[in-house]
Design a protein around this nucleic acid. Structure first.
Length: 188
DNA sequence: TTCGCGATCCGCT
DNA sequence: GCGGATCGCGAAC
C-alpha cells in the first residue's frame, strides 16, 4: 500500500462488498478520509494511533489491507482500511458509499430508511453493510469483506477538511477528506 | 478504580 | 438547529 492520502483518493470509486449469511451487500465508495502521516510538518493529532499503540489501535500498527473497526459514541461502528507504509500506522476512514447491490437487505438493516440515507455517513454505512466490531482486523484480501475495483473509474475527486475532528490542534486543518465530485451520496 | 469523552445518528422543535 | 443516547478506551487518580 502507499501513504494514506494517496490511498484515500484511490479508494474513491471502488466497491466495498460484504457477504454474510443474510446475503451480499455492495456499495461504491464516494467519501473517504485519510488518517496518519504528516501535513505541512505537523503530525496528524486527530489520528487514533497518534499517541502510540494501545489495545484499541493495535490493528492500525499491523499489516495493511486489513479493517480497523471501532466503536464510536457507545453505539456506532466506523470502518477504516489499514494502510501501513513501511510499518508506520495509517488508515482510511470510509465515510459513505452509493448502494449498488443488496439494497433491500440494506433497507432492512436500516429500518426502512430512504435509499439516500442508507449509507451516507460512517456509522450508517456500517449498519447498512452489516459491519461491526467483529470485523476489526478482518483481512480485506481474502474476504468475506473486501474491496473491488470494477474498472469504472477514474472518477473526479474533490478534497476538503475532515469532519468532527475539531478537538485536534493541527489535524482539524488537514484537507484530507475526499469525495466523488457531484455525487449525491456523500454525507454532506 | 474512577472519570471524561468521542473520526455519530436520530428525533424533536 | 439542538441535545440525548450509550459504552469502551485511555489517562488520571
Amino acid at each position: 500500500m502507499t501513504d494514506p492520502v494517496t490511498a484515500a483518493r484511490r479508494l474513491i470509486g471502488m466497491v466495498l462488498v460484504h457477504e454474510t449469511e443474510e446475503g451480499r451487500a455492495a456499495g461504491r465508495i464516494v467519501e473517504t478520509e485519510a488518517y496518519g502521516g504528516t501535513f505541512e510538518g505537523h503530525e496528524d493529532d486527530a489520528f487514533h494511533a497518534y499517541k502510540g499503540k494501545t489495545a484499541r489501535t493495535e490493528v492500525l500498527f499491523g499489516e495493511g489491507g486489513h479493517a480497523y473497526v471501532y466503536l464510536i459514541y457507545g453505539m456506532y461502528s466506523c470502518m477504516n482500511v489499514v494502510v501501513s507504509p513501511e510499518g508506520t500506522p495509517a488508515g482510511v476512514l470510509i465515510r459513505a458509499v452509493e448502494p449498488l447491490e443488496g439494497i433491500s437487505l440494506m433497507k432492512a438493516r436500516r429500518k426502512g430508511r430512504k435509499e439516500k440515507d442508507l449509507a451516507r455517513g460512517p456509522g450508517r454505512l456500517c449498519l447498512a453493510m452489516g459491519i461491526g466490531r467483529k470485523d476489526n482486523g478482518a483481512d480485506l484480501v481474502t474476504g468475506p469483506l473486501w474491496i473491488d475495483d470494477d474498472g469504472r473509474g477514474p472518477f473526479p475527486v474533490e478534497s476538503s477538511k475532515r469532519i468532527h475532528v475539531d478537538y485536534a490542534r493541527w489535524g482539524k486543518e488537514f484537507p484530507w477528506r475526499f469525495t466523488m465530485k457531484g455525487s449525491p451520496w456523500v454525507s454532506r
